[in-house]
Design a protein around this nucleic acid. Sequence first.
RNA 1: AGGAGAUUAGCUCAGUUGGUAGAGCGCCACCCUUACAAGGUGGAUGCCAUCGGUUCGAACCCGGUAUCUCCUACCA
Length: 895
Amino acid sequence: MFSDRYQPAEVEEKIYKLWMDNECFKAEDASTRPPFCVILPPPNVTGQLHIGHALNHTIQDVYVRYKRLKGFNVLWLPGIDHAGIATQAIVEKSLAKEGVFRKDIGREEFINKIWEWKHKYGDQILSQMKRLGNSCDWDRLTFTLDEGVSQAVRRVFLALYKQGAIYRGTRLINWSPKLETALSDIEVEHKDIKGSMWHIKYPIAGTDEFVVVATTRPETLLGDVAVCVHPDDERYKNLVGKKIRLPLTGREIPVIADSYVDPEFGSGVVKITPAHDFNDYAVGVRHELPMINVLTLDGKIIDEFTAYAGLKVKDARKQVVQDLEDQSLLEKTEVHKNSVGHCSRSGCVVEPMLSKQWFMTMEDKMKPALHAVVNGTTEFVPEMWTKTYRHWLENVQDWCISRQLWWGHRIPVWYCGDCEKETVIEVGEPSACDHCGSSKLKQDEDVLDTWFSSALWPFTTLGWPEKTESLKTFYPSDIMVTGSDIIFFWIARMMAQGIEFMKDVPFRKVYFNSLVRDSQGRKMSKSLGNSIDPVGLIESHGADALRFTLLAQLSLGKDIKFSQTRFEGYRNFMNKIWNGARFALNTEPQKMYSPSELDHIGSKSHYSVYDQWLVSSFEKMLFSVEKNLENDKLGEAAQDIYSFVWHEFCDWYIELSKIRLYKARAEEQEQSRLLLFQIWNRLCKVMHPFIPFISEEIYQHLPLKDVDILATAEFPSQESDKNWMSSLKNEVSFQEVENLKSVISAIRNIRGENRLGAGVKIKAYLVPEGDLSQKILGQHEQTIMRLCMLETMDQSAPTSLKQSAVADVNQEAFKVKVVIPLAGLVDMKEEVARLEKNRAKVDNDIQLLSGKLKNKKYLQNAPEDLVLADKLLLEKQKQAFEKLSAQLLLLQETD
RNA sequence: AGGAGAUUAGCUCAGUUGGUAGAGCGCCACCCUUACAAGGUGGAUGCCAUCGGUUCGAACCCGGUAUCUCCUACCA
């Protein structure tokens, strides 16, 4: 130890190794201790952890370490997600740089390449998680493509398939032409694009007349199957039922009426292209219209439209517009801002596409998932997210679960070459068709949406479908910590699948963590370049400082702005803790204590009132931390620790105890040291869930004969610490020290406001009123003199108050008049100003209180003790006012 | 368009059974006092967005308004 600055870089790696070597994070499948389980939302294998992960993981680590210290059999189960589309896209991109293309090397070879990537980056992510201090049971690390998980996925697929809940069908889905796969909604990002709105004349068949249709996508005109107006729109009523001669194709299409059309928007006439627009698709289904596909899977016009065949969407659009203009069918073009879906992985524009895909029915599955949250079986924190959850689940649609990718769980369906029917099995490959017995079977080329396996995560990680001890002990888990952005994609689906296959919810509580934004409040994103790398932060100020920065700012339901100066502030706090410990541990001579000496006390009389005050203060902090943790208020718990360590222990206790520690007799010194160790022994445990490295490092330096490991120690509690805590805390001593603090503050205040530097030696008259006041002053004379840097301290009244600063300390039974002669030290102006300011404050109080006490209704309705307190306060303030006025008069007198 | 949330010190934000507003950072003054200058002591700064209601009493409860943020959907 004992650099005067805390050096996290020298500590963290060593400490993490200590934990690993001692298997501190291992959970037991069978234990007499109560279980506590957290399943880590598995980070994507695609790259590095970002600061959002740091927050998410730190929150979990606080719960997990706290419960571990509380004696629970804790399992924090780590994992990594294969993240199908994201990983495939990234690996494909990186291979392309070397001139290697997926389609050239083939499925098997490409998947091998991804596995190589996974091993490299998976390990990198794990080491980053360790640097943060995550106390996961690493032996249980699970990857979403592990054999056991794959088995489970196939069993679920088969079960749902047999139920009819999984089916194959042709629907309109989001399609990435670049990646050539279906996308989930979460993979579609809407961006505002400045585009155009083209007003096109559609000729009415058999006439010379036109109807004008406004569109942002003229190229899909090729797939139009109708023109639609609002049924109540007078302008077009007579048009309904007539035919339109579709430009560029000559195809005749009907005019239909549907209330989906907004008569106010554009021309009030909409072209219907069911194969390329979600609304049009719905209209198409309602009106039983045909659906004409216009695009190839890679986003080009199909060959049937010879004039445009092979053109990309953008080029086709230009060509179509040009051709319409040439035929004088383009009425006008307007600038139009449009929100367009983009593929979050490749950046290309997403096309709604008619496609044959696998779907899972959702409506029935989501009912119990909704119910379990509404009735509180699973609790949402903060509670407001239940509204969002409900809103989503009540408007759920079937889920497209197939993806045209190579990386993922391959769909366990085989198609028969003879009868064309499907065979689905749970293990291995089928040898014959279920329906006709043919052996000409071919497996579906597609893989499952990543979220399909993620939805099973709470039980597949514990060994399902085997009936494992882990599953029995740890399902359901206690808390799931995650972002609210995946409440539907993940949380809801885990709820549904958990209830379906485990007959119980997957977790008792969901904690939705905040979003970490940059210092300007912007979302962190690659495109803005404002992402913060947590590893860089750890390297600069240490993992504990980072953790504490995130935790201390935590407030349920609110985002965190990451500020560098605040981070530095908490780095300073780590240093403060370090030096507080250094004060306790560096005092020579060193003696080693047995654990029992740190847990029990000898004679109470050996402890000073300062010690007793500290123990009371510690106890108050401890209870507050526990209460806040139990109520998921991690931020407030962190702040409890902050203010105890800095403002109670360092600011007051250390200063109060110095005299005894430096100057007193040997046995008294020994007693002081023992108390310091007793406090730090416990304080380390309280701090540990939040800042595990520094607390463990300090703990390892405690002069204990057999040092154990903090990570698996026992959290202090009223029961376990009964002897120590209840013997030492003492409300009378606590009050005594609070009184003492008030005198010291009063003197310091006079010093500060009169600009009397620390170098100026001052004399003070402290005039007590009553025995208690006298006793306290007498007992703490040395302390007062030291902390206020007094030259002399006199308990008798001064002969005159002229040319003196005066303050009245008045705390219930403790009353002291503080008089400090200022003659020759300062201009009296400062003191006059100080007293006037005080008097104004007191006067304000008097006005307020007397007004209140004149109000008859207040006297009738307010609780008695409140009224009484106000009356007492009023009297006290009136006296204070008198005294201040008298002193002001004195000061202004000239001799 | 629908839903949710926010508005408190210069900045970032706390503030639950309604009872005279708090913290960190920043700022000002003085100080390297043997744990710590990444420190110490003292100080300044608020019509708690706005209008109304309930109440003896509102930052807090209810309603309206303004501004901002996020989510979902959509813009043919």
